[in-house]
Design a protein around this nucleic acid. Structure first.
Lengths: 182, 182
DNA sequence: TACCTTGTTGAGCGTTGCTCAGCAAGCCGT
DNA sequence: ACGGCTTGCTGAGCAACGCTCAACAAGGTA
């Protein structure tokens, strides 16, 4: 049996789309090429025609996910409270996706870890600009660690909401202020 | 060729030891049973005699690593500043090991992620007790997120020491105080 | 010596990532 | 309409990996 013919761009987009659908429910090492090909109705070989290696494919999928996240959070640059709120909303909406992205990306191939790192640096950029801090290694590190705090807080909060949403937002803001006014 | 005969306990300990040596330099998915068996001078089959599955083996290795970390950090319970200092020292000394543990454990099999989670909860226990906070879900979450902050700060600091060691310790203490006096 | 426990092995199976030679569907120029 | 060209697409197959299983062999015990 032979699959319907598509343009190269179409097929690539379809495969990335399937990857995005699978990411929330499937850990990266368990996401097999067979499964993706089956869902797309194509042979394994064809996937390797578009992506030289499985890592390349995962790279494309996670990059797409990271772009969606960043463009959502950084939609209104300079508005720190809004960015924070949109970040929380994103995690609320796509919790499984987000956790899979963080955990999966960080633990898997180095190339995939880079995708997460770059996305995080973009969010750090946005934060530095929004709170008016200089872009030097020291302040980058401070904001990066603050983001680790906030990310963990929000993920934990969505799992077990022992705080109110406003408390989460307020706590994150307070800690950020504390760090930046030192 | 046949390997020297050992007692079951000896062999198990040897295999876990090899895993601990490999952890810093090898990511979990790349740590193959073949390699461990080769280093131990035994056949693959024998490893599966002691550990039913590869996940079981990784479990044993990461649990051993986590126990070493926790017993070091919690050596003097109740002494918050000392615990923090010992945590920083641990990451300074075993940076690659520690990062591999955090990253590798979190990204890999769910069972292995549990090992990291449990170790972290033990450190949270120690922190709650040391600063005299009640052990309820709310405060656990706060301390947990503070630990995410501190962990990221220390790991980032060892990679690029733009702060002094005392600044790192002070910053972590300040943020902890900020969180707990809310 | 015979036996039994138990540490140990080699052959082999299914799955997964990846390769390669070649089929076939559309689009030209004549 | 027909041959040729591009290009999307496939199937067979290889190597590496996790894992199984039947059987061998070393040491203690009767």
């Amino acid at each position: 049996m032979t699959a319907a013919r598509r343009t190269a761009a179409d097929r690539r987009a379809q495969l990335v789309e399937i990857g995005l659908e699978l990411l929330p429910t499937t850990r990266v090492p368990e996401l097999t090429v067979d499964e993706v090909a089956r869902r797309a109705g194509i042979s394994r070989s064809l996937l390797f025609h578009y992506f030289a290696t499985k890592t390349d494919y995962i790279d494309a999928v996670t990059t797409a996910a990271a772009d969606l996240l960043c463009s959502h959070v950084l939609a209104v640059p300079g508005d720190m409270a809004g960015m924070l709120d949109r970040f929380v909303s994103w995690v609320e909406t796509y919790r499984d996706s987000y956790v899979a992205f963080v955990r999966g990306a960080v633990g898997g191939d180095p190339a995939v870890a880079d995708v997460y790192t770059r996305a995080r640096e973009r969010l750090v950029d946005g934060t530095l600009a929004a709170v008016g801090l200089p872009d030097d290694p020291r302040h980058r590190q401070l904001v990066r660690s603050w983001f680790a705090f906030t990310e963990d807080l929000v993920i934990g909060w969505t799992a077990d909401p022992t705080l109110t949403r406003d408390e989460v937002l307020g706590l994150a803001s307070d800690v950020l202020a504390r760090i930046t006014t030192r």
